[in-house]
Design a protein around this nucleic acid. Structure first.
Lengths: 134, 134, 134, 134
DNA sequence: GTGGTCTAGACCACG
DNA sequence: GTGGTCTAGACCACC
């Protein structure tokens, strides 16, 4: 399971984990019934405190995204189906809107923004992929 | 001066003000020498605590974006020139990158994202502009 | 606000707080808009760790029972109306059922249980009320 | 031997078994000298891990409620006499007290509680007896 | 002053 | 080996 933590702005670590698991489930990369890494394992991999991972898993559990089997591990809920493309896009709506608002305030139109989007995307693909270490 | 506050997730109010003033200056909508609204006036308009506006102005001052003239008010620094388009785009780089990373994790490619960007932009222009007040 | 913690069986402390706040709200003893004690204050009063109280308050928040105003405190949600008597009784249904099951297994009928209930209740009222300290 | 397991809140499975065996002995339904089901048989019947049943039997043994005869099985201790009614009631004292405390916090008096007790009891007797399996 | 996050580490319950 | 709870204490952000 691919999870990247970055000390990005002010987003709490546990929140980043929650978001990313949700995204992996929404895109079908994590299928219902699939097992998530044990709390301690993921904590070690990300070099963060196990309590932080536990909090993320707990939130995912109350949200119904995952289910914990006490002594056996944590699994993607059987009811957590992948989302259609349009809904996945909708998950980004708020941030897109905020971006558009800021761009407008900067005197940039949507085409400039779209162009820049492609440019940055090209960069990402060239880079050797930097590690998301904290 | 057009400033919109939204209780959006976790972005601090003072930070929103700082960003927006920076943007207005970068785009040339606020010209060097121009006067900003007095703290109390802006606070009342946005219905927020005057301390919050004061903090934003203070940060803008130490950043050299604005200058306070003792008894008379707050003005855009004479050294605060509008930025070229490329630099203005660069201000959005971090958020663009984060967006691309999330989109990828959602299994969405850059073209889907660009398309959605245009779609949301169209929505914005139709709407009567919702109030950004608290 | 009256909250009692007891190292009773295995019920986690944070859970006891959650339950009791819910009950106080359900019975109308805590009215919508009323302020709860600050995390640190309640923690000190119960001589437990502030993190434990914070966890209880957080759960109450996601459940919509209370709302936190970031820098000002924690309040009973305006939408958290008192419940009618029948619903309040229903909150105890699970435990009542478990009790009846156990009583049956002990060869005790419901009347014996009801009688014992009154007897214990009489005791409670006589006692000087023992402290719920941990 | 009638034993029902329910994944009720947080009561451990092995504890449920212990309690129920104690209750059956206290009420005289399991007489001294009577044989308990073999570990594997009970485990299979309740569809739980044999280790869990073993743990329950072990606790019952150290408590002197049952005795293991090396090669032959597990039996109710000869010293395990049925308890008088008052003592059986006393076994429920803690839970009764907790219930009364909660009821009081919910603004319900003991009579309301006793009435509800009878009501739930009536329900139990009508129902076809729901399965207590996992 | 408010709440929020995170760490480090201990101890428990379960199977 | 799983996850759960709790503590102690640090540091941050906001107003």
């Amino acid at each position: 399971m691919q999870i990247q933590i970055s000390p990005q702005e002010g987003v709490p670590i546990y929140q980043q984990i929650v978001n990313q698991v949700r995204h992996l489930v929404a895109s079908g990369r994590l299928a219902p019934g699939e097992e998530l890494p044990p709390i301690r394992v993921l904590a070690e991999r990300l070099t963060i405190n196990p309590n932080t991972v536990a909090r993320a898993y707990r939130e995912l559990e109350v949200a119904g995204v995952v289910a914990k089997r006490r002594t056996s591990g944590t699994y993607v809920s059987s009811g957590a189906a992948p989302m259609p493309r349009s809904e996945r896009l909708a998950l980004l709506a708020d941030r897109i809107d905020a971006l558009l608002a800021d761009a407008e305030q900067l005197g940039l139109d949507v085409e400039a923004l779209a162009g820049y989007l492609r440019e940055r995307d090209a960069c990402r693909r060239e880079e050797p992929a930097k590690e998301g270490v904290r």
